[in-house]
Protein backbone atom coordinates (compact mmCIF):
# COMPACT_ATOMS: atom_id res chain seq x y z
CA UNK A 1 0.00 0.00 0.00
CA UNK A 2 1.31 3.45 -0.84
CA UNK A 3 1.25 5.21 2.49
CA UNK A 4 2.78 8.52 1.70
CA UNK A 5 1.90 9.97 -1.67
CA UNK A 6 2.44 13.72 -1.48
CA UNK A 7 0.51 14.26 -4.69
CA UNK A 8 -2.66 12.90 -3.05
CA UNK A 9 -1.96 14.84 0.12
CA UNK A 10 -1.80 17.97 -2.02
CA UNK A 11 -5.05 17.18 -3.84
CA UNK A 12 -6.82 16.57 -0.56
CA UNK A 13 -6.26 20.19 0.47
CA UNK A 14 -7.96 21.52 -2.66
CA UNK A 15 -7.30 24.94 -4.21
CA UNK A 16 -6.04 27.40 -1.63
CA UNK A 17 -5.09 30.24 -3.93
CA UNK A 18 -7.02 33.48 -3.53
CA UNK A 19 -8.77 35.36 -6.33
CA UNK A 20 -6.60 38.45 -6.06
CA UNK A 21 -6.40 40.69 -8.10
CA UNK A 22 -9.92 40.00 -9.46
CA UNK A 23 -11.11 40.23 -5.87
CA UNK A 24 -9.88 42.41 -3.02
CA UNK A 25 -7.05 41.23 -0.75
CA UNK A 26 -8.32 38.76 1.83
CA UNK A 27 -6.26 40.15 4.67
CA UNK A 28 -3.62 42.83 4.96
CA UNK A 29 -1.64 44.18 7.86
CA UNK A 30 -2.58 47.85 7.89
CA UNK A 31 0.91 49.18 8.58
CA UNK A 32 2.05 48.29 5.11
CA UNK A 33 -0.54 50.37 3.29
CA UNK A 34 -0.97 54.00 2.28
CA UNK A 35 -0.89 56.55 5.09
CA UNK A 36 -3.39 59.34 4.96
CA UNK A 37 -3.49 62.39 7.18
CA UNK A 38 -2.53 65.98 7.53
CA UNK A 39 -0.36 68.30 9.52
CA UNK A 40 3.29 68.43 10.35
CA UNK A 41 4.70 65.53 12.28
CA UNK A 42 8.15 64.52 13.39
CA UNK A 43 9.19 61.72 11.07
CA UNK A 44 12.53 59.96 11.69
CA UNK A 45 13.07 59.36 7.96
CA UNK A 46 11.48 62.56 6.57
CA UNK A 47 8.74 60.56 4.90
CA UNK A 48 6.26 63.28 5.85
CA UNK A 49 7.27 66.80 4.91
CA UNK A 50 4.78 69.68 4.81
CA UNK A 51 1.95 67.22 5.32
CA UNK A 52 2.91 65.19 2.24
CA UNK A 53 3.56 61.47 2.66
CA UNK A 54 6.35 59.81 0.62
CA UNK A 55 5.91 56.04 0.43
CA UNK A 56 9.47 55.49 -0.79
CA UNK A 57 10.90 56.71 2.50
CA UNK A 58 8.27 55.52 4.96
CA UNK A 59 9.23 52.75 7.41
CA UNK A 60 5.72 52.62 8.93
CA UNK A 61 7.05 53.22 12.45
CA UNK A 62 3.78 54.82 13.67
CA UNK A 63 5.48 57.91 15.08
CA UNK A 64 3.13 60.03 12.98
CA UNK A 65 -0.02 58.73 14.64
CA UNK A 66 -2.68 60.00 15.19
CA UNK A 67 -2.11 62.71 12.54
CA UNK A 68 -1.56 60.02 9.91
CA UNK A 69 -3.07 56.55 9.73
CA UNK A 70 -3.08 53.63 7.28
CA UNK A 71 -6.25 53.22 5.26
CA UNK A 72 -5.68 49.87 3.53
CA UNK A 73 -4.68 50.98 0.02
CA UNK A 74 -2.03 48.49 -1.11
CA UNK A 75 -1.05 50.36 -4.27
CA UNK A 76 2.07 52.02 -2.92
CA UNK A 77 4.53 51.57 -5.76
CA UNK A 78 5.88 53.55 -8.69
CA UNK A 79 6.52 52.13 -12.17
CA UNK A 80 8.86 54.41 -14.14
CA UNK A 81 9.45 51.97 -16.98
CA UNK A 82 7.50 48.84 -17.82
CA UNK A 83 8.35 46.01 -20.17
CA UNK A 84 5.49 44.27 -22.02
CA UNK A 85 7.89 41.58 -23.31
CA UNK A 86 7.59 39.94 -19.88
CA UNK A 87 3.79 39.55 -20.02
CA UNK A 88 3.84 35.76 -20.43
CA UNK A 89 6.93 34.93 -18.44
CA UNK A 90 8.68 37.09 -15.88
CA UNK A 91 11.80 35.74 -14.16
CA UNK A 92 12.98 37.52 -11.02
CA UNK A 93 16.46 37.42 -9.53
CA UNK A 94 16.24 38.30 -5.79
CA UNK A 95 19.24 40.28 -4.61
CA UNK A 96 19.88 40.93 -0.92
CA UNK A 97 22.18 43.91 -0.73
CA UNK A 98 21.88 44.34 3.05
CA UNK A 99 18.34 43.52 4.13
CA UNK A 100 17.01 42.61 7.57
CA UNK A 101 15.28 39.51 6.26
CA UNK A 102 11.70 40.84 6.30
CA UNK A 103 11.73 41.93 2.63
CA UNK A 104 13.36 38.59 1.76
CA UNK A 105 10.54 36.74 3.53
CA UNK A 106 7.78 38.81 1.92
CA UNK A 107 9.20 38.33 -1.57
CA UNK A 108 9.46 34.61 -0.82
CA UNK A 109 5.80 34.70 0.28
CA UNK A 110 4.42 35.56 -3.16
CA UNK A 111 5.21 31.94 -4.03
CA UNK A 112 2.99 30.65 -1.21
CA UNK A 113 -0.35 29.06 -2.21
CA UNK A 114 -2.41 32.08 -1.06
CA UNK A 115 -0.75 34.26 -3.74
CA UNK A 116 0.78 31.70 -6.15
CA UNK A 117 2.89 33.95 -8.38
CA UNK A 118 3.21 31.21 -11.00
CA UNK A 119 -0.41 31.73 -12.11
CA UNK A 120 0.77 35.13 -13.37
CA UNK A 121 3.79 33.58 -15.09
CA UNK A 122 6.16 34.97 -12.45
CA UNK A 123 9.11 32.83 -11.36
CA UNK A 124 12.31 33.11 -9.33
CA UNK A 125 15.67 32.35 -10.86
CA UNK A 126 18.98 31.81 -9.09
CA UNK A 127 21.08 33.45 -11.74
CA UNK A 128 21.04 36.93 -13.27
CA UNK A 129 21.75 35.34 -16.68
CA UNK A 130 18.18 34.01 -16.74
CA UNK A 131 16.58 37.05 -15.14
CA UNK A 132 14.17 39.57 -16.62
CA UNK A 133 14.26 41.68 -13.49
CA UNK A 134 16.49 42.05 -10.46
CA UNK A 135 14.63 42.65 -7.20
CA UNK A 136 16.95 44.51 -4.85
CA UNK A 137 16.35 44.37 -1.09
CA UNK A 138 18.19 46.15 1.69
CA UNK A 139 20.57 49.04 2.04
CA UNK A 140 23.82 49.67 0.21
CA UNK A 141 26.72 47.68 1.63
CA UNK A 142 30.33 47.85 0.53
CA UNK A 143 30.71 44.08 0.29
CA UNK A 144 27.72 43.56 -1.99
CA UNK A 145 28.56 46.39 -4.39
CA UNK A 146 30.69 44.24 -6.68
CA UNK A 147 28.13 41.41 -6.72
CA UNK A 148 25.37 43.91 -7.56
CA UNK A 149 27.37 45.47 -10.41
CA UNK A 150 28.20 42.02 -11.78
CA UNK A 151 24.57 40.91 -11.56
CA UNK A 152 23.33 44.02 -13.37
CA UNK A 153 25.94 43.48 -16.11
CA UNK A 154 25.14 39.79 -16.43
CA UNK A 155 21.43 40.33 -17.05
CA UNK A 156 20.34 40.20 -20.69
CA UNK A 157 18.19 43.02 -22.05
CA UNK A 158 15.45 44.04 -21.88
CA UNK A 159 15.61 44.12 -18.10
CA UNK A 160 14.01 45.85 -15.15
CA UNK A 161 15.59 46.99 -11.91
CA UNK A 162 13.19 46.84 -8.98
CA UNK A 163 13.61 48.27 -5.46
CA UNK A 164 11.73 46.28 -2.84
CA UNK A 165 11.12 48.25 0.33
CA UNK A 166 12.30 51.52 1.77
CA UNK A 167 15.89 50.35 2.49
CA UNK A 168 16.59 49.55 -1.15
CA UNK A 169 14.95 52.69 -2.53
CA UNK A 170 16.01 55.38 -0.06
CA UNK A 171 17.93 53.66 2.74
CA UNK A 172 14.98 53.84 5.14
CA UNK A 173 16.34 54.21 8.65
CA UNK A 174 19.24 51.79 8.21
CA UNK A 175 21.56 53.49 5.73
CA UNK A 176 21.46 54.57 2.12
CA UNK A 177 19.66 53.04 -0.84
CA UNK A 178 21.27 50.07 -2.58
CA UNK A 179 21.32 52.06 -5.86
CA UNK A 180 20.72 55.70 -6.73
CA UNK A 181 16.95 56.11 -6.69
CA UNK A 182 16.74 57.16 -10.37
CA UNK A 183 18.31 53.85 -11.47
CA UNK A 184 15.22 51.91 -10.46
CA UNK A 185 12.51 51.17 -13.01
CA UNK A 186 10.09 50.12 -10.29
CA UNK A 187 9.96 51.14 -6.62
CA UNK A 188 7.80 49.16 -4.21
CA UNK A 189 7.01 50.84 -0.90
CA UNK A 190 6.83 49.17 2.49
CA UNK A 191 8.95 48.09 5.39
CA UNK A 192 8.59 45.39 4.27
CA UNK A 193 6.09 45.63 1.38
CA UNK A 194 3.18 43.24 1.77
CA UNK A 195 2.82 40.42 -0.79
CA UNK A 196 -0.29 41.94 -2.39
CA UNK A 197 1.62 45.16 -3.08
CA UNK A 198 4.54 43.20 -4.54
CA UNK A 199 2.27 41.24 -6.89
CA UNK A 200 0.41 44.36 -8.00
CA UNK A 201 3.67 46.16 -8.72
CA UNK A 202 5.07 43.22 -10.68
CA UNK A 203 1.91 43.08 -12.78
CA UNK A 204 2.20 46.78 -13.60
CA UNK A 205 5.93 46.41 -14.28
CA UNK A 206 5.13 44.35 -17.34
CA UNK A 207 2.48 46.72 -18.55
CA UNK A 208 -0.63 44.83 -17.39
Amino acid sequence: MIKNLWFLRGLRKGIRTEKFPEENPVEIALWSTELIGEGNVECPVDAIVDGQWNFEKCIFCRKCTPSFAPKGNINIFRVRNNEPAFRKSFHLFPFDSGACGACNAELHNIASPQYDMTRFGIFFTNTPRHADAIVIMGVWTQGMKKALDLALDAMPGPKLVIALGSCASTGGIMGKGALENEKYDVIIGGCPPNPYTILSALEKARGD
Binding site: W6, F7, R9, G10, K13, R16, E27, I28, A29, L30, W31, S32, I59, F60, C61, R62, P70, A102, A105, E106, H108, N109, A111, S112, P113, Q114, Y115, C191, P192, N194, P195
Partner: peptide, 27 residues
Protein backbone atom coordinates in the same frame (compact mmCIF):
# COMPACT_ATOMS: atom_id res chain seq x y z
CA UNK B 1 3.82 19.64 -1.84
CA UNK B 2 5.07 19.93 1.76
CA UNK B 3 6.98 23.10 0.84
CA UNK B 4 3.77 24.72 -0.35
CA UNK B 5 1.72 23.40 2.53
CA UNK B 6 4.25 24.77 5.01
CA UNK B 7 4.40 28.09 3.15
CA UNK B 8 0.62 28.25 3.40
CA UNK B 9 0.76 27.79 7.18
CA UNK B 10 3.58 30.30 7.54
CA UNK B 11 1.60 32.89 5.62
CA UNK B 12 -1.41 32.12 7.82
CA UNK B 13 0.75 32.74 10.90
CA UNK B 14 1.99 36.03 9.42
CA UNK B 15 -1.60 37.14 8.88
CA UNK B 16 -2.57 36.31 12.44
CA UNK B 17 0.39 38.33 13.69
CA UNK B 18 -0.38 41.20 11.30
CA UNK B 19 -4.02 41.30 12.34
CA UNK B 20 -3.12 41.59 16.02
CA UNK B 21 -0.33 44.10 15.91
CA UNK B 22 -0.83 45.85 12.57
CA UNK B 23 2.49 44.57 11.28
CA UNK B 24 3.49 41.09 10.11
CA UNK B 25 6.98 41.33 11.60
CA UNK B 26 6.10 43.07 14.88
CA UNK B 27 7.64 46.41 13.82
Amino acid sequence: VPVNQLAFLREKASRIIGRRGGHRYFF
